[in-house]
Design a protein around this nucleic acid. Sequence first.
DNA 1: GACTCCCGTCGAATCGATTCGATGCAGCAC
DNA 2: GTGCTGCATCGAATCGATTCGACGGGAGTC
Lengths: 350, 350
Amino acid sequence: MTVRPTLAGVAARAGVSASTASLAFSGSSRVTPATKERVLAAAAELGYAGPDPLAASLRRGHSGIVGVFIGERLRYSFRDPVSVQLLDGISEVLGTHGSGLLLLAGDSGRPPLEQILRMPLDAAIFATCGLEDDPALAALLARGVPVVAVEGPDVDGVPLIDIDDRGGVADLGRHLYELGHRRVATVAMPLRLDGTRGEVGAARRAMAHYRDVRHRIEGVEDVFGAVPTMETAGNAVAEGELAGRALLDVPAERRPTAVLAQSDILAAGVLSAAGGLGLRVPEDVSVTGFDGADLHWLAPARLTTVFQPTEEKGRAAAAAAMALVADRPAPDVLLPVRLRIGTTSGPPPG
Amino acid sequence: MTVRPTLAGVAARAGVSASTASLAFSGSSRVTPATKERVLAAAAELGYAGPDPLAASLRRGHSGIVGVFIGERLRYSFRDPVSVQLLDGISEVLGTHGSGLLLLAGDSGRPPLEQILRMPLDAAIFATCGLEDDPALAALLARGVPVVAVEGPDVDGVPLIDIDDRGGVADLGRHLYELGHRRVATVAMPLRLDGTRGEVGAARRAMAHYRDVRHRIEGVEDVFGAVPTMETAGNAVAEGELAGRALLDVPAERRPTAVLAQSDILAAGVLSAAGGLGLRVPEDVSVTGFDGADLHWLAPARLTTVFQPTEEKGRAAAAAAMALVADRPAPDVLLPVRLRIGTTSGPPPG
DNA sequence: GACTCCCGTCGAATCGATTCGATGCAGCAC
DNA sequence: GTGCTGCATCGAATCGATTCGACGGGAGTC
């Protein structure tokens, strides 16, 4: 391995100055085609593959890299179709701006704060990471890195890309209410990531990290008042099944006639629990979800759910990040959701 | 917004030299606690949040960022549990080394080559991107960026992290053969990403981009010789269903008694196709997969499949990348796979 | 008391490019 | 022939830190 050649070397060999060589590489500036060609030839001879991104970034003042924080460990986030769609939307817009996407996974345990601060980020997107007082958020802001929050912390100076969680769930609630349901229950995503499962009390509720989870509980209450709420330890089918069984495996007169799961994934688990207990959906119990993620494996059932424009959310977040990078203002965004009635909701039994 | 303070500014205010200030930040070197504190205090007053990663990286010569190429667009890759697990394994090891993971999605269309070359990568991992002659691969190598391939291009100087695709599928084949199957078919993942579906001929086969796809076909042939092979346009349940229907919706005497799908996802589609045609599994037709991804939505069927240590593959890839960055040699890795017999394979009918 | 050793601090070089303002040359018009 | 315009090229400053070798002063030793 010989030492990597530098722009200066190429310039010397081409018989031009470093500045001219730089111009030759930065594209179609005011450089004679002949000179440009000479520089490129010299580069080829020396095996110079183009300017060092690090040096260029330092000089330019930005790296073309946007950090995306996903709360949990990768493996959990990616199980979740919503995270994936979100990321896809983000990546799409970043791509058109020529920016890269640096994934920052929480890993729950060790705070990756130092690692984060070592990364040359032009901006950061907090995707579903709750927590107004996240140390990483504070650190980034202190450093002057523009931050965008997706259903995340609502902090001054941080554009918030949000959906109408509460209104959407309330729509679901009204749909069920109109069908005649009066005794319902909720299966909630984790209020915070500490592995807690079970009925959510007031104390627990006060500890909630996540805005969306809170809002989705409130949406139910807007229609039904306080209802039993089972918290899960993660947004996963198995968790939904656990919670569903806890709610449904009781005498019929105490059993909720409808279960509002906070995500389609959890709803899938509840459906599975219902099936396991010999309950028919929707004849014996109605089940609803949230996200509208089109879980193919639910076929032939079509889940009654609330569709949210997840990819659009991602695009909006990336667009906001790009705006901030360009020193343009980035307003908050509130995206609409839409009730989608499927085959898993119907009148209560009896 | 005031101008961001620099290390020099902090040093001046603390009454020390820039070098000392740098030492104070880089942790526990030979700096008097008192001095260190003075520097930190000055930093706090000025709102200096630590050294600029770009400048530090330039000086150090590396950025702490590893690029991970996933062939297709994000949305497709992440539908695939295998990609996700792989990424998770990679991220795990990268994390322990304090390195960041820069996601590079192909987006099929526009070549993101320029974008790639703008990124300050310490190393790159080609995850399931086939193609020995990928221009991005060439560009990175030309630039001197260490590259690792996961089931990817087999190029000199590029460590290959691989699994025994062929042997694993051959194990499946023998299992089926011993059960009595003689007329089988294969549902293949795309040989290249051009949206082609249908029976794979010799010409098409010569165009294959992907080593794993090729090897999994060969594994079947090792046991059964040439068999009908349906290519899909993507690794998705719907694609598997399409291919499955094409293979199974024929008179019983021409119908294969077993279908070897190249992935669990595709197998799920084939199962669905079989169900749609009123065929029982495994009584009327056996179905096998590959990956051992534990698709929860298959319950109660347990897929007969080949387990591959996907996460381990990711860890090995990341470890190899880290080795190369540290200028240590990184040997090829071949990970074992394991036949896992489930409830979807049995003797042929009749 | 002098010499040595060691440790904390400092200067200066360096990483590799970008960019602004200056320079010089050629062409054109009068 | 002279003066002006314009364009390609060049010099030098700059981005913000890291790091190596040198230096100086205090402590320990004989």
